[in-house]
Design a protein around this nucleic acid. Structure first.
Lengths: 201, 201
DNA sequence: TCCAACATGTAAGGAGTTACATGATTTC
DNA sequence: GAAATCATGTAACTCCTTACATGTTGGA
């Protein structure tokens, strides 16, 4: 019932691909969707229960000899309707992001230049790793088993979003690193004066 | 004491600019920092209390005749040390983002093309608004009162981040809208067949 | 006269993470 | 024999938002 938790829709969305277990839902959310969404088991399992209680999904329990139980969830027509209703709703633009690096830079003028530079360089490395991950996802999406899936163009679009913003971020990192280096020359003495206070020693 | 709440550092950061009230902290966080950070009063006031209790800040209460009380907080040297310690720490890369639009697109292949198109176009409009806001912030940062502030280059850098990623997003929106339109032609019949089921009617 | 801005706080509750608890099967 | 993967769930706790409660000053 509750407010604006989007977890139920992420789970419903995963199930809409094909029936699967809670463990599988987590897997889907971690791999292809992982670069822009995530859910923990602590969220997924209770939600699956709610979905069944609300008639949006059904469960089948598979028992292999001695194997752990496997609960396979299937979306009902009501579940599909509820998912599609939400998908068509305008995006809730209300949640503002929190970007820790930017916060650190914003208040980091008093730090020695190597420290802020390091922050930016580290971020650059992480973005490079992300870009590499996108490359892997792109290869996975070339698999012929999904070549004709009607979802594929949209999956590629979400990937493209990651690539374009990552590339922009890379450019920003280079620009900003350059800026900090340029700043260093004119602030050399100030940085030295302030170094001990700035690092709190 | 707690885990990884960054609220205390955001507040400490605001106070590090100059002594101010809780109301002012909110103001700072909403204006120049607003495009990449936010805090609610429900967080700010308790944190200010904690900061004083922990010796990281001090309070002065201003009483104008009949006016509401104004509590002005000042960072102590320990507060500055604690802030700088955190600022120099590598960014906690652990928090993955949640991008609602991408989630909707990812699972939205079954929707009529106008619906997904609308989602993308709406996003484009919002990004344009953001870019306009950045323009206003840029003008505010040209004010001569802060022209010599050593923080200014860093403030401009955070702004630049917003601009570069917003521009990349704009490009993505155009590309994706084009893609959806192209898709429509080949999926016309499928869209018509599935329209009633897709909208849940 | 009313509204916006200034100003401070608390309480309830929702959202989400992390750690815990448990155990089988498969692969190296 | 160990580690990774498959598999399900709960409990405690943190974080954060929202709503509530209250009151002043200044401008349109």
């Amino acid at each position: 019932m509750s407010g604006r938790s989007r977890t139920r829709y992420a789970v419903l969305g995963a199930l809409s691909q094909h029936p699967m277990s809670g463990y599988d839902v987590k897997g889907v959310l971690e791999t292809i969707v992982g670069h822009f969404w995530h859910e923990s088991f602590g969220q997924i399992y209770p939600i699956l229960r709610e979905l069944v209680a609300g008639g949006l999904a059904t469960v089948d329990t598979e028992r292999g000899a001695g194997r752990p139980e496997r609960h396979v969830y299937t979306v009902t027509p009501q579940g599909t309707a509820e998912l599609n209703r939400w998908l068509a709703e305008p995006v809730d633009h209300h949640q503002r992001p929190r970007h820790e690096l930017l916060l650190k830079l914003f208040f980091g003028a008093g730090l020695p230049r190597e420290v802020t530079l390091r922050l930016v360089e580290r971020h650059r490395e992480e973005v490079e790793v992300m870009l590499a991950t996108y490359g892997e996802i792109r290869i996975a999406l070339q698999d012929e088993s999904i070549a004709n899936d009607r979802g594929r163009p949209f999956w590629l679009a979400t990937l493209r979003y990651g690539e374009l913003t990552a590339e922009a971020t890379l450019r920003w990192c280079d620009e900003t690193a350059e800026l900090i280096r340029a700043l260093a020359d004119s602030q050399e003495t100030a940085a030295l004066d302030g170094a001990s206070a700035a690092t709190g020693l």
